[in-house]
């Protein structure tokens, strides 16, 4: 069982205009573990993920009921600073989205908007984040060239480095390897396994082998409901629900 919850949802309902996208979701995310969210397209797993850093509310017509607790505090409560939440809960997008700036400026971005002015400090952090994502050796001689010149896999690792630079507590990953080739995917998965020593990670994936490889816990969503949640090994080998079994054995998806 999960003894140290980092994030928890309580009776979470999400509506997009008239449609209910999430139904009464109760999920607990363990600290410094990897939690995978799986399910067929349109099941609401990405929507759920984006609730954790309040990025959903950018879409006009989105309404949320229930609570999401980060360290026991409801992030949707009045008076919670959304900027602060997003700095504590980073997000890696499905398609690598480096800014059209230099590699260095991509990483410095989050630090500068947070008010950091000390250039040597920024350089230090940039170097450390690039080392942590295994990118340093590949890019150290061209930090000031455009990030758009990197390969897809490098771009995605840069996006992770960019998120790490502002020292979040939770990292959300929205199908982070779906646009990458197998070699680049392998590197990202390796990275995820490393990062869980310091960060709480929630990863949405279409790829069940990936969920099996990287995650400690897995939640299966179907039609906006959390059908089953549990230890990844148990969920994949002895699912309790018929729907889960059908999905992981590839009978629909």
């Amino acid at each position: 069982m999960i003894t140290s919850p980092k994030v928890e949802t309580k009776n979470l309902n999400l509506y997009y205009t008239e449609n209910q996208v999430l139904h009464d979701v109760n999920i607990t995310i363990a600290e410094k573990k990897v939690t995978a969210l799986i399910g067929p397209s349109g099941c609401g797993k990405s929507t759920l993920l984006r609730c954790f850093n309040r990025l959903n509310e950018l879409i006009v017509g989105t309404r949320i009921e229930g609570e999401i607790l980060l360290d026991g505090k409801n992030i949707y409560q009045n008076g919670m600073d959304v900027v602060d939440i997003r700095r504590r809960v980073g997000l890696i997008f499905q398609k690598p989205n480096p800014f059209p700036k230099s590699i260095y400026d991509n990483i410095a971005f989050g630090l500068k908007i947070g008010g950091m002015k000390n250039k040597s400090r920024i350089s230090e952090i940039a170097e450390k984040s690039l080392i942590d994502t295994g990118l340093w050796e590949e890019v150290k001689d061209r930090l000031h060239t455009s990030a758009l010149d990197l390969s897809g896999g490098q771009q995605q690792r840069l996006c992770i480095a960019r998120a790490l630079a502002i020292e979040p507590e939770v990292i959300l990953m929205d199908e982070p390897t779906s646009a990458l080739d197998p070699a680049a995917t392998f590197k990202i998965e390796e990275l995820v396994t490393q990062l869980k020593n310091s960060y709480t990670i929630i990863i949405v994936t279409h790829n069940m082998q990936q969920a099996g490889r990287v995650s400690d816990f897995t939640g299966f969503l179907y039609l906006g409901k959390l059908i089953e949640f549990g230890n990844t090994n148990i969920l994949f080998t002895r699912p309790k629900e018929k729907l889960t079994e059908n999905y992981i054995s590839g009978r629909f998806g």
Binding site: L58, L91, K95, P100, I113
Partner: peptide, 19 residues
């Protein structure tokens, strides 16, 4: 994605627009 990427890093609306 340039806007969402910035907002996800904790940029305010104005910082996102300006930078």
């Amino acid at each position: 994605s340039y806007r969402d990427g910035a907002l996800a890093l904790g940029a305010t609306n104005w910082q996102t627009i300006w930078r």
